[in-house]
């Protein structure tokens, strides 16, 4: 189960993004992501998480600073279809079925996959039996899961997930939290997970980056050295609880910064 493209090392150097209207969404982010690891970006809503993800995906260009994926700019990775994004809004094409949407990703990446493999992915995200359903017939959570399956279909070296479980119900979310890490570990995928859920970040990742309210700046970089496989129930164990507390403390610290969050209200 090797990925189609080897997992890359990603480096952000002094990345700042100021939108045309003057909104500064990301400020001076310096980060390196090691290949094959899962990193969570945690921060309050509207802080600039999606923007940072889109910068890394090459969908936005930094106002200043540099992003480098395996020695090249993101646009190069895009060209080789070495990355996939599961967007915050599932963005399924309404005229295609679940299977059709997954096949679209393969078409766009100019890849072929066995029907069996697509079928397995659909089962993995718990949509078995809905392969031929159109997005309009699915719930919000089901659509998000279809988008996750689509992102996995091209076996990307770099997987970018933007709040992928926002609308997924609790039980299914726990199921996915068990199954997805197994898949990306087996594939050696470098994964970047944007979330505002602290427990989700601790449960799924090897490392949590905590961001301040807008413009996003790094307040903490916390290694999550819990053994795998992990179980959602395991979050109640003392070492996991301590990590969660650290992340929460870092979030509060960010909110308390003079020009942000509570202080800025």
């Amino acid at each position: 189960m090797a990925p189609e493209t080897p997992p890359p090392r990603i480096a952000c150097e002094g990345v700042t993004k100021i939108f045309a209207g003057g909104t500064e969404a990301v400020r001076d982010v310096n980060l390196t992501f090691e290949p094959g690891r899962t990193t969570a970006l945690v921060g309050p809503s509207g802080c600039g998480k999606s923007t940072l993800l889109r910068l890394i995906a090459g969908l936005e260009t930094p106002t200043s600073g540099r992003i480098d994926i395996a020695g090249a700019p993101p646009s190069e990775t895009l060209r080789h279809a070495g990355l996939s994004v599961a967007f915050q809004d599932p963005s399924l094409l309404p005229w295609r079925s679940v299977r059709g949407n997954i096949e679209l990703a393969l078409q766009l990446a100019r890849q072929k996959a066995a029907d069996r493999e697509v079928e397995d992915l659909i089962d993995l995200v718990g949509l078995g039996g809905f392969a031929e359903a159109r997005p309009a017939a699915l719930s919000g959570g089901m659509r998000q899961r279809a988008a996750i399956a689509r992102a996995l279909a091209t076996r990307p070296g770099l997987l970018l997930l933007d709040e992928p479980f926002g609308a997924v119900d609790e039980l299914t979310r726990q199921q996915l939290a068990r199954d997805l890490p197994k898949l990306w570990e087996a594939r050696g995928t470098t994964t970047l997970l944007v979330t505002h859920s602290v427990s989700e970040a601790v449960l799924l990742s090897d490392r949590v980056i905590v961001l301040t309210p807008r413009p996003a700046e790094i307040v903490a970089d916390i290694a999550i050295d819990l053994p795998r496989p992990r179980d959602p129930d395991g979050l109640r164990a003392p070492d996991a609880a301590a990590l969660i507390d650290r992340v929460v403390a870092a979030l509060s610290e960010g909110m308390a910064l003079p020009d942000r969050g509570i202080a800025a209200q």
Partner: peptide, 26 residues
């Protein structure tokens, strides 16, 4: 079409022609 559909096509490194075929035309 919502801009995220165009982002999707771009995220696989494809350009305006693929957007036309897969998104805009439909």
């Amino acid at each position: 079409a919502p801009s995220s559909w165009f982002d999707l096509v771009r995220s696989y490194g494809r350009g305006r022609f693929a957007t036309l075929v897969h998104v805009r035309a439909m």
